[in-house]
């Protein structure tokens, strides 16, 4: 059983087709990484899966129903997304921002409820941002800020969470910290997580499943140990390399040749 999948999906902007005729199945309860060179269409695919971009052809199905037939609000209760460069209003505090993740669960007239409160407090706790509640976002470090954005997506309380390059602007320590957090959420809360990322080594280390993309198509898909080969890296990134087992976890590690 899979909750989110795409069939024959083509996506694009203006007159340009970015990805065409993709079949994607997002494995429930797993952490999936979408990897590929710059401009290979991985963020576009993620936007398509999250209903931010309407399909040119084909469809994305959530729980068996086409995404375009569902209301935005219903999608938002099941599927969360953290964009690549989210915008924080000037001066907004952590508490305020994370609370805005509750949007799909609140009505036009419904006030803040106990459930909202528990969800936001839980999200702050899980991301280790509870001490920052009164702080304005702009005063935080990059790593803290990214954790706050994840907290907002968590407060949305969705079973599926898609993240567009959440680690790109972080230093190595914070990249690992964020990925550990996402794995923890996957292990403890059973969330299905899809991450678009650049760092293949980290993807292999922390993700259960890898989707490798090249020029708008999927070239390989599966567990990192099964699919990451020197040929694939050469094909996707144009980098000749050796694959050695990660000395700590045994997962594939890419070493440029």
């Amino acid at each position: 059983m899979t909750r989110l999948r795409a069939e024959g999906l083509s996506l694009g902007y203006d007159d340009k087709n970015i990805v065409s005729n993709l079949d994607v199945t997002v494995l429930d309860g797993k952490v999936t990484a979408i990897v590929g060179a710059n401009a290979c269409g991985k963020s576009t695919l993620l936007r398509g899966l999250a209903r931010l971009l309407a399909p040119r052809s084909g469809a994305v199905y959530l729980d068996g129903k086409a995404l375009t037939d569902l209301s935005t609000l219903d999608v938002a209760k099941v599927l969360g997304l953290l964009p690549q460069t989210p915008i924080a209003p000037d001066g907004i505090t952590v508490a305020d921002l994370v609370a805005r993740g509750r949007y799909p669960h609140q009505g036009w007239f419904r006030r803040w409820t106990e459930r909202d409160h528990t969800a936001v407090a839980g999200a702050l706790e899980a991301t280790g941002t509870a001490d920052l509640v009164d702080r304005p976002i702009r005063e935080l470090s990059g790593g803290q800020r990214q954790r706050v954005w994840v907290a907002m997506a968590l407060a949305q309380d969705t079973d599926l969470l898609l993240l567009d390059e959440p680690t790109t602007y972080l230093d190595i320590n914070h990249q690992v910290e964020l990925l550990r957090l996402l794995c923890k959420l996957n292990a403890e809360a059973g969330k299905t997580i899809v991450i678009v990322m650049h760092d293949l080594n980290l993807a292999c280390r922390f993700c259960d499943h890898v989707i490798a993309m090249c020029e708008g198509s999927i070239v390989a898909e599966g567990a990192p140990t099964d699919v990451i080969t020197a040929e694939l890296v050469e094909k996707v990134f144009g980098l000749s390399c050796m694959i050695v087992p990660d000395p700590v976890a045994g997962t594939p590690m890419i070493v440029p040749a």
Binding site: R47, A50, R51, L52, T72, A76, L79, G80, L81, L82, P83, T85, P86, I87, A88, P89, L97, R100, G101, Y103, P104, Q156
Partner: peptide, 9 residues
């Protein structure tokens, strides 16, 4: 919060 986040919400 920007259009993408707003739509995701």
């Amino acid at each position: 919060l920007g259009d993408d986040t707003a739509r995701a919400l």
